[in-house]
């Protein structure tokens, strides 16, 4: 490693800029005060208690879990099937279909929110949790397609052919060969789909109604509509819930990398 000292210092500073500001939500969440004063003057668990007992917060958590799970189920199924389909296309058609499937990633969320809101008003899906889940499914599809495709590309296509030539029908080739091999990609796609839905604000904000409030929308409203410090407990929880799996994945990945290049 022949990096110049200044480069190391700059990188550390940028790393701190990326991570440290977000961490203030953790001490904030144990504050005893009803304002957002930082650092807090006293400590309490009040906001955690409110997060799980106050009906508006606990309902929004349950809503978000429902929307997230429905989105995960739909996006993982559709996305995995689509990724398998992409493998069977010629290069040209594959490029086109991939572009279409991945397009929700690059289109600004605000535009997607506007477009879906206007369509769902007509379809009567606005203000419903299932409407939010359907919109999130379209948004989460790219993550599943990317994760599964990455996995399938590392796979030897001869395996499937071998299964077929040994007399297995296409369905059992899929069940016994393709699916088990693609499974890690499917699972990571599912995790990404869940996170992307659980954290999505803009579309859920447009489609919200008193009976369809997700956790991010409740958080958004708790600083824009009223001042409710419960948001700091919710934020801390989300930071921890997202960071821990990624940290674990990285640690395991690094170990595996060290253990040798074989997979």
């Amino acid at each position: 490693m022949n990096a110049r000292p200044w480069l190391k210092i700059v990188s550390v500073l940028i790393g701190l800029f990326l991570t440290v500001p977000t961490l203030v939500v953790i001490p904030m969440s144990f504050s005893a005060s009803k304002t957002f004063r930082f650092p807090p003057e006293g400590w309490s668990l009040e906001w955690y208690e409110r997060l799980f007992t106050a009906p508006e917060w606990s309902t929004s958590i349950v809503n978000s879990l429902q929307v997230g799970l429905l989105t995960t189920l739909l996006a993982t199924t559709l996305g995995t099937a689509a990724a398998l389909g992409l493998q069977r296309l010629g290069p040209r058609a594959r490029g086109l279909a991939t572009g279409l499937l991945l397009s929700p990633i690059i289109i600004p969320h605000i535009l997607i929110a506007l477009v879906i809101f206007s369509a769902f008003l007509r379809l009567g899906l606005s203000g419903t949790l299932s409407g939010i889940a359907l919109a999130h499914t379209a948004m989460a599809l790219p993550f599943v397609v990317i994760a599964v495709t990455a996995r399938l590309q590392g796979m030897d296509p001869a395996l499937q052919k071998a299964g077929g030539s040994l007399g297995a029908n296409p369905f059992s080739v899929f069940r016994k060969i393709t699916l088990p091999l693609a499974l890690p990609g499917v699972l990571s796609g599912a995790v990404l789909a869940f996170i992307s839905s659980f954290d999505e604000v803009v579309i859920a904000l447009f489609l919200q109604s008193p009976s369809a409030l997700t956790l991010p929308v409740q958080m958004f409203n708790s600083v824009t509509v009223q001042i409710d410090p419960t948001i700091s407990a919710a934020s801390s929880l989300m930071v921890v819930l997202v960071s821990v799996p990624i940290l674990l994945a990285q640690v395991i990945g690094a170990r595996r990398g060290k253990a040798g290049r074989q997979r």
Partner: peptide, 17 residues
Amino acid sequence: VPFWTSMLARNFAWMVL
């Protein structure tokens, strides 16, 4: 980690700061 961390949590943190 920031990439996947709640967008709202990160913006709320800036609001506090």
